[in-house]
């Protein structure tokens, strides 16, 4: 098993395998196929780029969606 990488997901510590992509993380988190957006270290990553975007040690991932408000 490859080494684990420590990251933050929505402000909470999480571990992913080294070499994981955003697409892999999305699967682990069970993200729906519509209605969510992801920012990696403050940069928005379009869904089309998730499969080729690597998560590195110490990365901060924000996953957002709609909520009742406003």
């Amino acid at each position: 098993m490859s080494a684990a990488t420590g990251i933050m997901v929505n402000g909470k510590p999480a571990q992913v395998e080294e070499g994981s992509t955003l697409a892999g993380l999305a699967e682990t988190l069970g993200l729906p196929d519509r209605g969510v957006a992801v920012a990696l270290d403050g940069e928005i990553v379009p869904r089309s780029q998730w499969a080729v975007t690597l998560i590195t040690d110490g990365s901060a991932v924000e996953v957002v969606s709609i909520a009742a408000g406003g």
């Binding site: 929505n10 209605g35 996953v63 957002v64 009742a68 408000g69």
Partner: peptide
Amino acid sequence: TVAIRRFDPRASVGLFDLL
């Protein structure tokens, strides 16, 4: 109108489906 917040599988999905 809706707000944008951190993903919450229980809240976000239900609202999205309703709209």
